[in-house]
Write a protein that binds this DNA or RNA. Structure first.
Lengths: 203, 203
DNA sequence: GGGAAGACTGTTTAAAATCACAGCCTTCAT
DNA sequence: ATGAAGGCTGTGATTTTAAACAGTCTTCCC
């Protein structure tokens, strides 16, 4: 990695959020003076130094000499689409990101953090077909009846959650498939996220 | 309507497309000089007059005195979401537009022209459930086997198309529903578009 | 055949926006 | 206690942009 992406201060995060909101609502980044107006700064240099700090931390890119020359780095644009997941590595590892889709995360609620390509027909009767992309909100907890993305040992799967004490049932939505029963005292099970929507591209 | 939206010349359409592409790729509108560079104009006034013409026709909004002050009118932003369709009026009539969704039409191919909220379970086995939004590409023709949006007299429905001479069969994807058979010599049938994708928002 | 609309070149001016320089104050880790 | 980093005010030079003015050439319509 060339640019180290250090953590932002809360003020810097506010500025970054404002930039994102401005691009979303006005279809263009703000000027230094617009940042000043939004935060009540009296000096354009207050905005300038904040932008420099954000650029130094890799949160934005500054094009010098151009009006409204603030860009969000490519990584921040669009939702990552996760394809086949290799055993043992984290879901959002870079090698799993097949593409980035220009979809507004706020289209779904709670907002989507990534898209996951579903393999197989185990959720057919829930209207989830082979090849569909599901929008996933990252969460470690979920309620019974929600469709979740779970990792059991090194396997990632999409099923309806049914918790019964220390036992977790993962229900398919297809009579051809069997319910997976996991004893969490013996087998590690991690909830990766909750399904918040679905996108299908017909070919 | 306050602004009359006359048709654009081909050159004006090119300029408008360039503006749209620039906003999409660079997250900001172009300057006059950037328009000049893109089209090989030697005078910034060439860009200026084109922008004036586009603004006069309502294709863009110009904010005076601001750098990169070109905006696309609200109607051009996001796909229209069509809800319940009233009998007899065109599908894309303003009163049917429930909302606008910030989804890139090019997410689908061929690109989506609008979203339609599906009612009922007649396409359940095709993974289309009640309340789902389908992305539709406007087209008057379709091939057999494609899922289409059709209007039969004053009714709009989503089914799989099966043409047999002058007879058209509209196949549901659910054994509880019956195939609709239409003799196009007697009953007017209009193909409104082809389904190119689906979006579901879980609640 | 005259006039309006479209598609440009070329030049200039004024405003908008970037960005450098010089400070002040606070917090926080060494 | 000292220096570095964050978060500002205030000023001004310089560049980028917008936008006005003055033309040329063509097409298409009445």
């Amino acid at each position: 990695m060339t640019t180290r992406s250090r953590s932002l201060t809360s003020r810097q995060q506010e500025i970054l959020d404002f930039i994102g909101q401005t691009i979303k609502h006005e279809s263009r980044p703000p000027t230094r003076l617009e940042v000043c107006a939004a935060f009540g700064f009296r000096s354009p240099n207050a905005a300038e130094t904040h932008l420099r700090a954000l650029a130094a931390k890799g949160a934005i890119l500054l094009e010098e000499g151009r009006a409204r020359g603030i860009r969000l780095p490519h990584a921040a644009q669009g939702l990552p689409l996760i394809g086949r997941v290799a055993a043992g590595s984290p879901l959002l590892a870079a090698e799993h990101v097949e593409a980035r889709c220009s979809i507004d995360p706020a289209l779904f609620s709670p907002p989507a953090d990534y898209l996951l390509r579903v393999r197989g027909m185990s959720m057919r009767d829930a209207g989830i077909l082979d090849g569909d992309l599901i929008a996933v909100h990252r969460a470690a907890e979920a309620r019974n009846g929600q469709i979740v993305v779970v990792r059991i040992e090194d396997d990632v799967t999409v099923k309806t959650l049914q918790r019964k004490g220390s036992t977790v049932e993962l229900l398919p939505a297809n009579p051809d498939y069997q319910t997976i029963v996991v004893d969490t005292r013996r087998t590690p099970l991690v909830i990766e996220g909750i399904m918040v929507g679905l996108i299908r591209k017909d070919s």
